[in-house]
Design a protein around this nucleic acid. Structure first.
Lengths: 193, 193
DNA sequence: AGCAGTAGCGGAACATTGTTCCGCTTAGCC
DNA sequence: GGCTAAGCGGAACAATGTTCCGCTACTGCT
């Protein structure tokens, strides 16, 4: 049984689709409030369904996490286009990295999920590799083409490192956010050393 | 009831002291194998005691973690003395940071504990602030005194960032270790930009 | 509209793990 | 050797993840 809807041979029943949507909404809220380790029952309850229904659509917690985070990830990728249009290559790189920093900081648990190595997070890792990594790669190449001296670095590795630096404490405070940005800034400086 | 032995008014019974030692040894092994989230029962069993005994000496999981990690932390601090004696200030800084990197990478969960913000990890945070932070501070000042241009940075923040970058996957592979060192290197380069 | 078949639902039941409690054991002291 | 309480072990309870299955009601067909 494929999780959620993988373009299966048959259409999904209408009520089932509604439940999936309700679960995604509920999960987004609960994750934001209590982190990705929140009790499964809390999500099911907020969505107004039984735990069985949750497990039917998202056999693994990671499936739910992946689904919730993927949307936000896409928004971050799209932001790159706007930034590239508005700023010269070097500055665009910095600006997008900061945009990405904020994105990761807002989604507690994303960083941990990303390189947990757990095969269950494959969908997230795939989105990461096919969307975010090429985006950074493009920005790096543009900056290099514009004459900037930028250390050779694997884009995926760099993005992973930035995500690590966004590990904030229990509550994402302004202080933690500032700290993350300072350290990411240091990493960016290192890229140009 | 104070955890472990806090210079209480009365001596601890000899068998109790043995159990504490057995627990610390067991916990060190189990943490290394399965991470700091390993089941409490596994630790108690390996130590050959009941869970009640474990809870008597370490009411919180964090007490056990703190006790286990503190020893290793001290070893890392001591290493700085040797390194400072053997290398010029600038190189000593880099070498010690790498030593610290290896230390953190080996202790999965240390980074998370360090800035979890959880008050329970206070003992660890104290050791961190009183031992590691001054060590880095000394190394930074020495390097600056030797004429190196080093960005102003809070030592604690920097050490926290390095710890974050050591977040390896499930198994601490040579690959993950190499990745961590590359990114820490980038951060060090940023320090001198 | 009415019906049959099945996708999907709900939640009880089970498994794992953290945490507490208390009767029994035994080290430390005289 | 005997007294006393520090300390022990593990049963019992609580929270949470996961599975399973009888029942419901949506969909497609006529």
């Amino acid at each position: 049984m494929p999780p959620v809807e993988t373009a299966g041979p048959r259409r999904m029943r209408a009520d089932a689709r509604q439940n999936v949507d309700a679960l995604l909404d509920a999960a987004k809220d609960v994750f934001a409030e209590s982190g990705v380790d929140a009790p499964v029952r809390a999500i099911a309850e907020r969505a107004g369904v039984g735990v069985g229904t949750l497990y039917r659509h998202f056999p693994q917690r990671s499936d739910l996490i992946s689904a919730v985070f993927r949307r936000e990830m896409d928004a971050c990728v799209d932001a790159a286009l706007e930034i590239e249009a508005a700023y010269p290559p070097g500055e665009a790189l910095d600006r997008w990295i900061m945009r990405y920093t904020q994105f990761v900081a807002a989604k507690r648990g994303l960083a941990a999920a990303l390189h947990s190595g757990d095969a269950a997070y494959e969908p997230l890792a795939v989105s990461f590799s096919t969307r975010l990594v090429p985006t950074l790669n493009r920005l790096l190449e543009s900056a290099r083409a514009a004459g900037e001296r930028i250390a050779p670095v694997a884009p995926g590795e760099f993005l992973g490192a930035v995500a690590d630096l966004c590990h904030s404490g229990p509550r994402s405070s302004a202080e933690a956010s500032a700290r993350a940005e300072r350290m990411v800034g240091l990493l960016l400086a290192g890229l140009r050393a």
